[in-house]
Computed example of a mutant assay.
Amino acid sequence: MSLQLTEGGSRELKARMAEIVRLREEAEQRQKAEKARKAREAEAEKARAAEMARMKREAEDARKAEIARTAEIASLKQALEARLKAGGPGGKNALPDMSGVDFGRYHALVIGIEDYKHLPKLQTAVNDAVTVAQVLKKEYGFKVTLLLDPDHGEVIDAFDEYREKLGPTDNLLIYYVGHGWLDEDSDRGYWLPVDAKPKRRSRWVSNATITDTLKALSAKHVMVVADS
């Protein structure tokens, strides 16, 4: 027995087959779209988890930095108090029975650098410098020069200005917070001003420059504190 389709029946069968193919393709497209959506959601969740982990690390780093900064300031205050017990600029810790002795002026050069142009930026250097400057000025009577994000020339100029104005009875504290670099080949350290470039020493301030400056000062006492 043979089955013959009329022309109309053949067209109807082809139409049904085409509809089945279309529905199958649409189902496959929906499956692909659903798979892609789930993949995007998984990637987004992964990114959110990574961001949360990053924020947690940054918060922990900030907490540790604050603890270290507080400890450093406390240590600096202790050192200053010890110095002032031997005679100071007339602050609350100076010995009253030595008020007639000329202990000279107390100066402080405070440098804080964080907004680097060519190096990774720091987070708390400027705040640390401002805090130290306020402590020195308000609690210990220092005359403070505060340099925030200075370039190489501004640091050297500040050194030269103190070289010109300090006398033999004056005292100077230099506090630096910012990037530092140790050249292990030459065994020489550097402070890195805001315009310093990696592997280019033309804008670095070497320990030799700092030492030469200190030797040339007429000051009676000089203290250097570097957080780099």
Rank of each mutant, 00 (worst) to 15 (best):
A74E: 06
A74Q: 00
A74M: 02
A74D: 06
S75H: 04
S75Y: 03
L76H: 01
L76D: 09
Q78I: 11
A79S: 11
A79P: 14
L80T: 14
L80P: 14
E81S: 09
E81P: 15
A82D: 11
R83G: 09
L84N: 07
K85F: 08
A86Q: 08
G88W: 00
G88N: 02
P89N: 08
G90I: 13
G91M: 03
G91V: 12
K92L: 11
K92P: 15
N93K: 11
N93P: 15
N93R: 08
N93I: 15
A94E: 05
L95V: 15
L95K: 08
P96E: 05
D97C: 12
D97K: 11
D97S: 12
M98Q: 10
M98W: 10
G100F: 10
V101N: 05
V101S: 12
V101Q: 07
D102G: 11
D102M: 05
D102K: 03
D102W: 01
D102L: 03
F103H: 08
G104T: 13
R105K: 09
R105T: 15
Y106K: 00
Y106T: 12
L109T: 13
L109W: 06
V110C: 07
G112W: 06
G112A: 03
I113H: 03
I113K: 01
E114I: 15
E114G: 12
E114W: 01
D115S: 06
K117T: 12
K117F: 10
K117I: 14
L119G: 09
L119M: 08
L119S: 00
K121P: 15
K121C: 12
T124I: 14
A125M: 10
V126R: 04
N127W: 05
A129M: 07
T131N: 08
T131F: 00
V132R: 00
V132G: 04
A133S: 10
A133F: 05
Q134E: 06
Q134S: 10
K137C: 09
K137E: 08
K137V: 13
K138Q: 11
K138E: 12
K138P: 13
E139V: 10
Y140S: 03
G141L: 06
G141Y: 01
G141V: 10
F142H: 08
K143L: 07
V144K: 00
V144M: 02
T145M: 03
T145H: 00
L146D: 06
L147I: 13
L147C: 05
L148M: 10
L148T: 15
D149V: 13
D149C: 11
D149A: 03
P150H: 02
P150L: 02
H152E: 10
H152S: 12
G153K: 02
G153L: 03
E154K: 00
E154W: 00
I156A: 00
D157R: 01
D157L: 07
D157C: 02
A158Y: 01
D160S: 09
E161A: 07
E161K: 04
Y162C: 04
Y162D: 04
Y162N: 05
R163S: 10
R163T: 14
R163Y: 09
E164W: 08
E164Q: 08
E164C: 09
K165G: 05
L166I: 12
G167P: 14
G167I: 10
P168Y: 00
P168L: 04
D170P: 13
N171F: 01
V177M: 03
G178R: 00
G178H: 01
H179K: 01
H179I: 13
G180K: 02
G180A: 04
W181Y: 08
L182Y: 07
D183K: 01
E184S: 07
